[in-house]
Design a protein around this nucleic acid. Sequence first.
DNA 1: GACGTTACTGCAAGCAGCTTGCAACAAGCT
DNA 2: AGCTTGTTGCAAGCTGCTTGCAGTAACGTC
Lengths: 152, 152
Amino acid sequence: MPRPDVIELTLDAIREQGGRVTDQRRAILRVLFEGSDHVTADDLATRVHAQLPDVHVTTVYRFLDTLAEMGLVTHVHLGHGPAVYHLSAHRHAHVVCERCGEIGVIDDAVLQGWSDQLEQGSGFRLVDQHFAFAGLCRGCSAEARPSEHTEG
Amino acid sequence: MPRPDVIELTLDAIREQGGRVTDQRRAILRVLFEGSDHVTADDLATRVHAQLPDVHVTTVYRFLDTLAEMGLVTHVHLGHGPAVYHLSAHRHAHVVCERCGEIGVIDDAVLQGWSDQLEQGSGFRLVDQHFAFAGLCRGCSAEARPSEHTEG
DNA sequence: GACGTTACTGCAAGCAGCTTGCAACAAGCT
DNA sequence: AGCTTGTTGCAAGCTGCTTGCAGTAACGTC
């Protein structure tokens, strides 16, 4: 459970910029700060419903937008499905197994290294963790090439 | 213009596996082999319309699926929009500038290096170029941090 | 060259994941 | 309490595909 102050502090910030504090927003923040990483907007709505049954997904999307503009949350596309949201503070790059959907985290330093390497070549930097990297986890990777040693 | 044989050879392969050769399929293949990389299914349909005005996007999607099963084409998600298709032979990893949409290519050897590095850590391999990497091109990257030297 | 089987096609409808328009509602200032 | 205006819920819309289905036509067979 998060300290209640982080929620109220966030709500204060919203008020300060002319926004309004509603039960819906408080409930959404509560779920967000509960630490559930990698939640879709739909998940979020469902969890909010435990506290406040009539909150609409639209409301969740709109408030997530507001929070994104404030720099508080970001969303990531892990693959083909819906985007997942998390607190910007928890931001990191993801690898997703294309077979089983397992999610891995890429170390910031590692990503930075790749970015530097890429920049020297094509000038591109990997600045953003907005799209996950597609990959194979250890297990699926082993299954995908079961007879590797028989080839060649 | 591609040598017409590659198209006919492909059509032969389709026939060999019980598929049928239609004007639509020939036209789609023609456009595909014309070398237009990074085309969406919609683009493809539009270009096919120059030769055969009534080909439906559905037909394009379905034939692209067939070609994908044969290993001939692959699709890549460059960002939020529609997927782009290209011949599997032209396959490579992409970086896409999140600002201007410019597309960069990531060298296979470079990607392999990253994959190896990642595998040693989390066990994940970057096997697939199914999703593009999000980044910033040189120009946009410079604009995004105009006062970098004043920081710190 | 006609015939039959069955793959392919076009159209309409469906679906996921959002986004938008709008009227009703209510937060927060006075 | 009253007023302004941001927020909400609902319905409808939109994009990028996918599916169901009846009609069409490729291709093997006679």
